[in-house]
Amino acid sequence: MNLALKDIRHSLFRFVLTCFGLGLLMTVVLAMIGIYNGLVADALAIVKAPEAELWVVEAGTQGPFAEASSIPADTRDAVARLPGIAASGAITYQTLETESAGKALRLYVIGYETGRLGGPSHLIAGREIGTSHFEAVADRKTGLVPGDTIRLGRDRFTVVGLTEEAMNSGGDPAIFVTLADAIALQTEIAPAAERVRAARGATPPSANNVAAVIARLEPDADVELVAATIRQWKHLSALSQSDQENLLLASVVDRARRQIGLFLGILLSVSAVVIALIIYTMTMEKLKQIATLKLIGAPDRTILGLIVQQALILGGSGWGIGLTLILLVKDNFPRRVLLEPMNAAVLAGIIVVVCLVASGLGIRAALKVDPATALGG
């Protein structure tokens, strides 16, 4: 006879309710792990999307993500002529807010040269941009579908394709347009503001600047050597793909990542304390039954097995409920919740350790019970 299961059946409703409450706590823990992973993945997604190996930006900046960067668009031709460069492309980035289906929609607009580096890495629906103006490829999280139209600036763009997992570090979904359209969006100003600018004789903003030039190298080319060559041009700087990713994590999302990580640590600590208290309380409620077991000659290992098995069943049930719930609701979060099998496995290991430690507290109390307690009233 398994005493742990028999005791659970004796108070099944309360045990199930306790497991469900613990499961909700595990759901929050897994959600925070997923949000942390999603924050990092979102931040790196936009850097990895062009599948570039080299980023050429304005000298003295760490652009185009950590800082603003503006370089002449024809820099792409100069970079393309360098030894070791296999492909290159000019690219721009900007954030704007528009309206779709009666709701405000915040977008990360990426302008690229069709047929060159910088466009969407893959499509899940529709086709690529086929004209020089007023077509777009949107991330599926925008809620747009091929055939929809959306106003960007003063013009309406037709969505011709969909991609996925293209967003900036703030979680804003991306929309890809041609470089010419993106530059027009960057430089256009309201008519009233244009009249004021003309009256003051101010210089109009440059209509031929981009945020960066990206490049892919020949298989035998040394990225550091090519980057060093570009840095010799006084008005340019160059970053490798790994440098760009590390810079993004160290500057743009570092504070948010650390804050979420700290909150996750607090949640794990609270979960450990809650599990320990639940198991300890369950043990203290059974002291009279434990005393009876001792009185009839049950060995200590029987009592130890009773407490440890119940603790592991409680922790395992809570973990299973939490994992099931987060998998069901994670797609409804406004930010991406990214859970990997290793995350669930590590949390399971942590729960097992916590349950064993908490069992130790209960076992210590149980082994101190005087068998004569069972004869009391």
Rank of each mutant, 00 (worst) to 15 (best):
I290D: 02
L293Y: 14
V57A: 03
L25Y: 03
I307E: 01
Q186C: 02
A180K: 11
T61G: 02
V253Q: 03
K234M: 08
A250P: 03
G118W: 03
A365K: 14
A358H: 07
L306Q: 15
R76K: 14
Q259G: 09
P83N: 09
L264M: 02
A358L: 10
V226P: 01
A182F: 04
P334D: 02
I363F: 06
D222L: 07
R140M: 12
L179P: 01
H10Y: 11
A104M: 11
R154G: 11
N209D: 13
Q244E: 14
E67D: 15
R216T: 12
L327G: 04
I307H: 03
L185T: 02
L367Y: 06
L277H: 05
T158P: 01
G201P: 06
A272L: 09
G126Q: 04
I71M: 06
G84Q: 06
E113L: 05
V346S: 02
A238V: 06
Y93N: 07
F15M: 07
A41N: 14
T178N: 05
V352N: 07
K294M: 08
G130M: 11
D139G: 03
L295C: 12
G63E: 02
E128G: 13
L304I: 15
L3W: 10
F134D: 11
D74E: 12
L24F: 07
L267V: 11
L25H: 02
D155P: 01
C355N: 05
L267F: 15
R335F: 13
Q244R: 09
V273Q: 07
R197F: 07
S206E: 13
N168P: 07
G322D: 02
T187N: 08
T27Y: 09
G38C: 05
V210D: 00
E67Y: 02
S359C: 07
A41C: 05
Q186R: 12
N343F: 08
G376M: 11
L264S: 00
L225N: 09
I150K: 08
L82N: 00
